[in-house]
Amino acid sequence: MDKAGKVLVVDDFSTMRKVIRNLLKQLGYENIVEAEDGVAALEVLRSQKIDFVISDWNMPNMSGLELLKQVRADGSLSKTPFLMVTAETLKDNVVEAVKAGVDNYIVKPFTADVLSEKIGQIEKKRG
């Protein structure tokens, strides 16, 4: 992804958003927006052009999985690359996200390198 691309970071824990934001900055991404749950994320997605979504799984109001499903079902958003953040303990749930069409998933905690690798993989598959 172009480093100028706009990344949406979704997590209900603001410190976590900051952590991911910092990692993205290390990778050279500067254009970052945040949302605190799936509902807020959808609003962002529908109001501005987002090039990449990094979303937590477990959030109030609308979970990451539900957000993913909504994104995939929305004609204009359906192609948006989507990276799901999950915890080791809840990794089994990832299968649900995979079936719902997630591009990749990443297990907390992760380093900038792993994040970069996952973003790279997604880009490669999408050509």
Partner: peptide, 28 residues
């Protein structure tokens, strides 16, 4: 249950990034 689970989950997530192993473990 989820409403009580989530904060622990979030605290664990961030503390794992911040290398706060004891906090991460107990939250986990």
């Amino acid at each position: 249950i989820n409403a009580v689970f989530r904060p622990f989950h979030s605290i664990k997530g961030v503390s794992s990034f911040l290398d706060l192993t004891e906090i991460r473990d107990i939250a986990h």
